[in-house]
Structures are given as C-alpha cells and as structure tokens.
C-alpha cells in the first residue's frame, strides 16, 4: 500500500500531464495538478522552517562545534519571521503590503540580504579565474583547442580584437577576431549546446516513461 499509492499517483498524474498537451479538455487538469504542487510546497515550507529551527536549536543546546553560527542563524530566522509576520515598521500598518517601501522586511531585504547575496555572487569572478587557469592549461589536444577558442573569444569581445585584425580585407573578414568570436559562439558553441539539449529531451522522455510505468522506483527509497 505504501508503495502502490505513490506509484498510482505518479502514473496517473504523469499520464494526464502528457495527454493534456494533446487533448484540450484535459488542459485544465494539467493546470490543476500544477496548482496542487504549489499548495503542497507551501505546507512543506512549514516543515522546512521547523526543521531549520530544530536542528540549529539542538546544536546550540548541546554546545556542538561552531554553534556560534547556529546562534546567528536562529537570531536571523526569528527576527525576520517576527518582522515579516507582524509587519513591524510597515508604513501601511498590519493590513499593508508585505513588500511596502520602508517596511521592516523590505529594509532587511535591501540592507542585508541583497548585499550579502551580491558578495557571494562576486566571489564567482575569482572562482572563474582559478577554474579557467586549470581548464585552459594546454595539457592535451582538447585543452589546447579550448584555450585557443577562449583566447579568440576574449580578444573578440574587446576592442583589442579589432585593433589587431581590423586590417584584414573585407572579403576575408571572417578571419577578423571579433567575427571569429561570433562564429565560435553562434556555430560551434550553439551546435554543441543544441546536441546536449536534444540528448536532455530524450533522456527526460525515457526517465519519465520509467517513472510513469513504475519501473524506476528509486525515488521511493528502493527499487523493489
């Protein structure tokens, strides 16, 4: 029973979602199933919040290693939750919009979350540099092709590319570095990306069929 019900739900919902594309009267069913998911996700959010609170409280309570981080998490969680729930500092009061300008929650978002997120995102620049250094070392033929392509694209996206190769006559303009960069991106790179996407599409079809037919039950824990 514990397995049969989830398998039945998966089979029925999966079939309806596929069929709804081809049969107009079933379209609303497909939309309804998507709505069901949103409703379930909202309830699951309570589970997530509760779990976050429980795990970090346990860590602080038992004075586990690095429990200081858990204190910061708990304080941040509770302060944001309280300000958001009771709309503290909201110029429009308790009935106002939660995203009203000047509200406490908006202030937290603009003054704390956005700068912190930007800081994390900014780290990407340094990681790109370190990853590129490793990836572009010409240790074999493929890596050398990668290095040359990257070099052409980097040059092609800067004025230096045109400065170096702008003298090439019009009939051979494809060899100007900016044009070469465009060709690499629009032909070689796009072809590669599309081939991956075709494979992904086929992979999704095969995996969906395995799930709908109940052959792949690993998501239920074991494939028995």
């Amino acid at each position: 029973m514990k397995r049969t019900v989830p398998l039945l739900i998966t089979g029925i919902v999966g079939t309806v979602l596929i069929v709804s594309v081809l049969i107009p009267p079933a379209q609303s069913l497909g939309e309804d199933f998507s709505l069901f998911f949103d409703i379930i996700a909202v309830f699951a959010f309570f589970l997530g919040g509760g779990n976050l609170f429980r795990i970090h409280l346990k860590k602080v309570f038992h004075r586990k290693e690095d429990y200081g981080f858990s204190i910061v998490t708990l304080v941040g969680f509770l302060v944001t939750l309280t300000i958001g729930l009771f709309k503290i500092g909201n110029p429009e009061g308790i009935s106002g919009s939660i995203t009203a300008a000047g509200s406490g929650l908006q202030t937290i978002f603009v003054s704390i979350i956005t700068p912190l997120s930007s800081t994390m995102y900014a780290l990407l620049a340094f990681y790109v540099a370190s990853a590129s250094y490793r990836a572009f070392r010409a240790k074999n033929r493929e890596a050398t092709i990668l290095l040359v392509s990257a070099f052409v694209i980097l040059l092609g996206r800067t004025p230096l590319g045109m400065m170096l190769t702008g003298w090439i006559p019009e009939q051979f303009s494809i060899f100007q570095i900016p044009n070469l960069a465009v060709w690499i991106m629009n032909s070689a790179n796009l072809a590669g990306q599309r081939s991956i996407l075709i494979g992904v599409g086929l992979g999704v079809v095969a995996m969906s069929l395995r799930l709908i037919l109940g052959m792949d039950r690993t998501y239920l824990g074991s494939d028995k």
Partner: peptide, 22 residues
C-alpha cells in the same frame, strides 16, 4: 553531461528493463 544525469538511475540499477529504456 545532460542525458547521462537522467540515465544514471537506470544505469546504476543494472536492471535490463531499465537499461532497455536507455
């Protein structure tokens, strides 16, 4: 890469039926 992610479960199971889907 791409499809290999979706093939992983069938591949790891070694079950001929699932491999057939690949």
């Amino acid at each position: 890469i791409g499809e290999e992610l979706f093939a992983a479960s069938a591949y790891l199971s070694g079950d001929p039926k699932q491999l057939g889907s690949l």
